[in-house]
Design a protein around this nucleic acid. Sequence first.
RNA 1: GUGUCUGUAGCUCAAUGGCAGAGCACCUGACUGUGGAUCAGGUGGUUGUGGGUUCGAGUCCCAUCAGACACCCCA
Length: 432
Amino acid sequence: MQKLQNIKGMRDHLPPAMLLRQYIINTLIGVFERYGFEPLSTPVLEYAEVLEGKLGDDEKLIYRFEDHGGRKLALRYDQTVPLARVVAQYSGQITLPWRRYAVGASYRGERPARGRYREFWQADVDIVGSHSPLADAEIVAVLSDGLEALGFPTFTTLLNHRQVLGGIARVSGLDEEAAGGIYRAIDKLDKIGAEGVREELRHSGVDQGCADRILEMVLLEGSSEDTLQALRQHLHDDARAVAALDNLEDILRGLEDMGIAPARYCLSPRLARGLSYYTGAVFETISSHWPQGSLLGGGRYDDLIGMFAGQRVATVGLAFGVERLHDVMEELGLGPRNRTTAQVFVTVFGAEQRVASLQLARELRAAGVPVMTALEPESPLGKQLKEADRKGVRYALVLGPDELSRSEVLVKDLASGEQRGVAREAVAEALR
RNA sequence: GUGUCUGUAGCUCAAUGGCAGAGCACCUGACUGUGGAUCAGGUGGUUGUGGGUUCGAGUCCCAUCAGACACCCCA
């Protein structure tokens, strides 16, 4: 018999963890659907060639398999490539622009860390087929509303644009192609400080004057409007950067018009992200409670979704990482503290009262109250109450001879210890 | 993928190279219509796994698996 253990980076989710996970997922789905996003589900397995050639260096992280027929398969790496496949495969059945969400597992053979696993769930939202800055704004709005619905007290979404970074590189006289390392250095500003970035830039072969110019732009702080104006002055010679700043201004106005609290977002020229497939706006949410890095992120990627269709399909989206949210919420004590699904435990006093108790449970369920019943009518009441308490059920109901003779039910609040007799027909109401 | 650290009862952790232990949890009872508190008793281990050194290994060495942290990258 093999030792029982999990595959590295893959976890079991026991009921307490599962209850919080489901709360997170259900809460997010609620927000998505209030914006009119539609659900999509695709298989966890894809033909390997569907995933190949889209991820660059990350390709080695893909889990690959052969099935019994020798077909080369792969576990999906994210929800984005499957979306691209669906958009191409069902073009006749999909009306653009399409707001779609997908919740499910993806797999990456990375080194696991806190908030980062080899099997992980994402709640992914995208708007497919729209260039509008309102689409970008709406994704950020969904992000904001989602985190607020989950009860996050503080978070900020940093906004930037790929062509703002490109402009910063260009006006500093750098080869854009070779600028990847520079973006990564810039992105680390908050972690390693201005001098750390200067050091890294120098290592990348950037001369002192260039580094100073880059840092001057990247260190801009303050209101989004001020940052925007300052960047316009620095980048006014670069047409693509100017267009990007116009786009960011439109997105910011969209957020304002949508009524998203200004404290929730901020223009940040230092935000870089992976950038491998982003083509426009990028964003990333940070929280002081998650020093490990970004809570979630996303952006516009106009080239990726259309690749199977053979045309550009403007798309903007983001992914909520369920495990990461779960780990942060657990640390912060956010979310419901339920340890079980049942709100009520119906005891069975004895053989004589068994029918009455089971029928009461049925009535409560019909009224929408989640109920679990005692399975051992012979066991003493104390033991049944103990079971209810240990399961974490809020109320215990007792239907003994005394209660039955008065057509009452004893309702005991296991948290406070208070108990009272309630008329049988009023029990469901009393438990609300 | 690189580096550092950790792994002993269900959980949190003790044990100088020399008899594997405690607290909590769990089970039973004190308590035949009342859970939590208290008291008494009890169950529970191939010390992650496989090798090696040694008279003797939880302890030292090697490998491996898993976890944590910092890089890398990301949800």
